[in-house]
Computed example of a mutant assay.
Amino acid sequence: MHIALIGQKGLPSQYGGIETHVEELATRLVRHGNHVTAYTRSWYTPANMNLYNGIVLKSLPSINTKHLDAISHTFLATLHACLIERPDIIHFHGVGPSLLSWIPKILRPQAVVINTFHCIDREHAKWGAFARWMLQLGEKACIKFGHEVIAVSRTLVNYIAVSYHQRVHYIPNGISPRRANTDDVLLAPFDLQSFQYIAMVARLVPHKGAHTLIDAWKLAREKEPELLRNIKLAIIGGSAFTDSYVEQLHAQARGDSSIVLTGFQRGDVLKALFAGAKFIVHPSTSEGLPIAILEAMSFGKAVIASDIPENMEVIAEYGVPFSTGDVKELSEKIIELASDEMQTASIGHAAREFVETEYHWDDIANATVELYEKRLAIREGILAVR
Rank of each mutant, 00 (worst) to 15 (best):
F92E: 01
P12A: 10
F92C: 00
S346Q: 14
F145Q: 03
V320I: 15
L219S: 11
E313F: 01
A47T: 13
D243E: 15
L57F: 10
I114T: 00
T285R: 00
I382E: 12
V30L: 09
F92K: 02
R221F: 06
L83P: 05
D268N: 12
E139H: 08
A180D: 15
E310K: 02
L5Q: 14
E341M: 08
A210V: 10
G10V: 07
L213C: 09
F299E: 09
R122I: 02
Y197G: 09
R221N: 12
E222L: 14
G237F: 04
F354G: 05
C142G: 02
Y52A: 09
E247Q: 13
K232E: 07
I143P: 05
H169V: 13
K66E: 11
I71S: 02
G255Q: 08
Q252N: 06
N53E: 14
A220C: 11
W133L: 13
L99H: 00
A240S: 13
P283M: 00
P87W: 04
H169D: 12
H282M: 08
T20K: 14
G209T: 09
T212A: 09
V56S: 15
E247L: 10
I6K: 02
R41Y: 10
V260Y: 02
D121Y: 01
H91S: 06
M342Q: 15
L213P: 07
T37Y: 13
G10Q: 06
T74M: 06
R86A: 07
S286C: 01
A305G: 15
A161G: 14
R179G: 12
G33A: 10
R41P: 03
A338L: 09
H360A: 12
G7A: 07
M342R: 13
D340R: 09
A81Q: 06
I347Q: 03
V112G: 00
R167F: 04
H211I: 08
K218M: 13
L204I: 10
S13A: 15
A302F: 04
S194E: 08
G237H: 03
R352D: 04
